[in-house]
């Protein structure tokens, strides 16, 4: 990829652009490689490096990876046509995005419940006792999952109160482990320490219950480019 260059886009705004040779970036070439995660991943890192470089120097609206125009004029015209850019830029100024995920592993929960398990119910045969115990376990796991969901909601609320904006995405459920919260938070750079301290405190508080809290970031504000619903 050619070096990035700045293209004036009017109103004190600039496009960061780089020339993309057609033999590598024509639509059919890119489409053919989209399932190659190694290749896409390298392109993603290049894209991210450029976005982060400029994020440290001003307010950046990151474009989607593989946003391709046939020329500078087309790109500038597209940007000039957009409404609401001024509002978007001011909503992003001085802020960065943090990602927080809350997950629970039902298997881990079950092990914990088994360790804390009640003694065998007296007066039952070994077989019946086993079944009763399994039933109690299932019930306890369900209860713990409800509890974990509530914890995830509390984490979101606590962190949203420290953020300028917050988004929550419905996580894709995967059997065996459950992502309960996939949140993005737009945080003032000056409040980043307070925010990350709070995430760590929440992680410590919920870890003993089999609920993990994971922080990523800071990110460019990828999740805050569209108006909140």
């Amino acid at each position: 990829m050619a070096p990035a260059r700045l293209v004036p886009a009017g109103a004190g705004r600039w496009l960061v652009a780089a020339d993309a040779p057609l033999r590598r970036y024509a639509a059919d070439v890119v489409n053919g490689r989209l399932s190659d995660l190694g290749w896409v991943g390298e392109r993603a890192m290049e894209h991210e490096r450029v976005v982060e470089h400029f994020t440290r120097r001003g307010t950046v609206i990151p474009m989607k990876l593989f946003t391709l125009f046939t020329g500078d004029e087309k790109a500038v015209a597209d940007v000039r046509r957009r409404r609401g850019l001024a509002g978007l830029l001011s909503s992003l100024a001085g802020r960065e995005e943090w990602g927080v995920r809350v997950a629970v592993d039902p298997g881990r929960l079950r092990r914990q419940i088994r360790e804390r398990a009640s003694r065998p119910t007296p007066g039952l045969t070994a077989g019946t006792g086993f079944l009763v115990q399994r039933q109690q376990e299932q019930r306890a796991v369900r209860g713990s999952l409800d509890d974990a969901r509530q914890r995830a909601d509390e984490v979101f609320a606590a962190l949203a109160s420290l953020a300028a904006d917050a988004r929550r995405r419905d996580p894709a459920g995967v059997e065996g482990a459950t992502l309960l919260l996939d949140g993005a938070f737009l945080v003032e750079r000056t409040r980043a320490d307070a925010f990350t301290d709070e995430v760590r405190a929440l992680a410590r508080r919920h870890a003993p219950e089999g609920v993990s809290v994971v922080l990523t970031g800071p990110w460019p504000p990828y999740n805050f480019l569209t108006p909140s619903r």
Partner: peptide, 21 residues
């Protein structure tokens, strides 16, 4: 890496380029 790819591919939606992928 997946997280990054997810961010740069699925978000950053502001501009639609000439070349549709």
């Amino acid at each position: 890496l997946l997280d990054l790819v997810d961010h740069v591919l699925n978000k950053g939606v502001v501009v639609t380029g000439d070349v549709m992928l």
